[in-house]
Amino acid sequence: MSQRARGRDALGAEEAPWSRAVGRVVVAFAVALVLFQSVGLLRDGDRLRGLVRGQPAPTLRLPTLAGPPISLEQWRGRVVLLEFWATWCPPCREKLGLLERLQDELGAQGLQAVTVEIEGNRERVSQLVGAQAERRRRGGLAASAVVHAIGTDAVAEAYRVQTIPQLVVIGRRGEVLHVQVGGGGEDELRQQVAQALTASAPTGGGSGAGATR
């Protein structure tokens, strides 16, 4: 009787009769994991939804690197551009540069850029910010007016930070106007900030500052 007739393959190994059952167990386990997570999401899935445009921005009270603690209310009447970031994230550090440029260009029109480092790594933040300040000084620029805050888990959760960098444009009345995550998107961000600055100037009687797509 040949090897094949005896249920052996060309390599001489026997066919395992329970292969299909094991495969089905693996598939069933994967499906069970999906169901298990789905139950959790149905119960508590709202936390995965990002900030919704038009909603009031969550409360923000945080310590800063070298000044008094900040709160969002102190900038009521200005457009606030928040960046949630971490020191180990390269696209986040690129966005820091963009925030400085926007603050330089649009600060006089009512923009306030604020960075919030989400891991509480004060020392590393201080190094990075200090290095950037030194570059500005050597380039003949004045110190940046960007405020650097040290974040907490509670604030990151309140702002639904799932991916970094996360940028949030907050209007003059404290409402969320735009959310952007990940690297790139400078043109869109500039457009959204410009719209926010012109939508409800403090001396005008303009209409609501809700952003539209």
Binding site: A10, A13, E14, E15, W18, S19, V22, G23, R24
Partner: peptide, 25 residues
């Protein structure tokens, strides 16, 4: 011919047999 489940399980419990079948014309 084996289906997905059979090949998946086969790679866990009898990889040589499963690979031999997969190498066949």
């Amino acid at each position: 011919m084996q289906g997905f489940s059979a090949r998946l399980g086969g790679m866990l419990v009898a990889p040589r047999a499963t690979l031999a079948r997969a190498a066949a014309p």
